[in-house]
Design a protein around this nucleic acid. Structure first.
Lengths: 238, 238
DNA sequence: TACCTAGTGGGTACATTGTTCCCATCAAGG
DNA sequence: CCTTGATGGGAACAATGTACCCACTAGGTA
């Protein structure tokens, strides 16, 4: 693999037209995304994709070199859902918030995305399209592209981490095959005993008992506003 | 699985003493972590763990219900590396920074952690130990535990996302079996042609050509300080 | 028109994995 | 000494990714 390795995106470009193709890469990627969204990456098998497309399993290998490449294409494809405004507003803060919210929504729509992007740097055409817009928006923060890029990266980090954390419980349920109720019925007593009743974790106990339970949206918004505040301070200050 | 499902942590507790056990859960988990650290999760197979331990493959199932549970134990085990100070300092900002840095260092030491935690909420004993400290430190930010917890969560999001993003390139190399040099030799020309020479992505081009290349540490620090600034503003303001 | 060639679909088969089943072994208690 | 239950681990199976191979077909060529 190390010798003749080429990026998918290269091969997509000089893809000669095929004679009466029965499938298309787009179709395959779309089907794969549907499966992974609905049933988790663990349910994403080549046979399954083929079955859903009504084709033979190994026919897929005419379009995609393997499952790995399929996942790479999926990661880029969902970037295509990120709608890019014609131009950034005049308020960088509004723009960065919009970027954060759209990225988060996308990551939550595709629960496999946040983990899969962890080994697939998004450099496909759709990702580039989005990055270009994000950098344009970040240009409103600072004319210094180094600063702008670093701060955009910070927002990106926050959004991705928030998605990973938010999804972890849901994905744990999927992995174990438990419903949300069953999950709670297993975890709650454990937490009560080990955390609360043991007395070993007073702060965690306080957190569980006294804290208002913010939903994920509120929680996300608080952190995001903090980060944007910090960015604002750094920019106006310098 | 849905009927007789119990958390690992339960079973760890009422683990009856075994007669002349040849292995131990700790030993198995440690070995698994070593393999995953050195060669990636893809190299982590039950047979491999057994081989490294000089035992039969299926003997592992006397200690662990399956690979999934092993990964759960691994995720908790690495939390054990997070050294907890006897008590938080008087400066919450120092404490949160320390938390962020230690968590990041741990995530980078174990490249599989950030993605695996995405489907395994850390509720094991080692994770609880760390969370307790983190909440104590966050108590310095605000007496309101709801606020403190939300802001700590923001830091946590940022750190995790930073790790995922930072590791993505390295993990891509591992997945493709390319060295760092080979990887660059493949990606660089692609970026040059598609991003720079195409003229389609002026901001991205500016980013690549004009921006000073910050290393990951610097990049992390900038975002972290922004976030802490934002937290500080929110707390003193309110 | 007849034929050739390269691209295409897809079945078969194999290696690798997680995991279940089963049996031999062995420590400890009666 | 014998019984019992726990333990190590081999054999075997199901699921999966994928290489290999063959049949078929469209479109150009003689």
């Amino acid at each position: 693999m190390s010798e003749e390795f080429t990026l998918v995106w290269r091969r997509l470009a000089d893809q000669r037209r095929r004679q009466r193709p029965a499938l298309s890469i787009d179709q395959i990627v779309r089907t794969a995304i549907q499966i992974a969204d609905a049933e988790g990456v663990q349910a994403l098998t080549m046979r399954r994709v083929a079955t859903d497309l009504g084709s033979g399993t190994t026919s897929l290998y005419r379009y995609v070199t393997g499952k790995d490449e399929l996942l790479e294409l999926m990661v880029d494809a969902v970037h295509g859902e990120l709608e890019v405004p014609e131009q950034p507003s005049e308020d960088w803060r509004v723009d960065l918030a919009l970027i954060a919210h759209r990225q988060r929504a996308m990551a939550l729509r595709h629960p496999w995305f946040a983990t899969e992007v962890g080994s697939r740097p998004p450099i496909g055409p759709q990702a580039l399209r989005w990055i270009e817009f994000a950098l344009t928006a970040a240009g409103g923060v600072s004319r210094d592209i180094t600063v702008a890029s670093a701060l955009l990266g910070a927002v990106n980090n926050y959004v991705l981490g928030a998605a990973v954390n938010e999804l972890s419980e849901q994905e744990a349920q999927r992995r174990t095959g438990l419903t949300e109720d069953q999950w709670r019925a297993v975890v709650a007593p454990y937490i009560r005993e080990v955390v609360i009743e043991s007395g070993d974790f007073p702060e965690a106990t306080r957190r569980i008992i006294d804290a208002v339970d913010l939903n994920h949206d509120e929680q996300f918004e608080i952190g995001l506003q903090c980060l944007l505040d910090g960015i604002a301070a750094r920019v106006t200050g310098a």
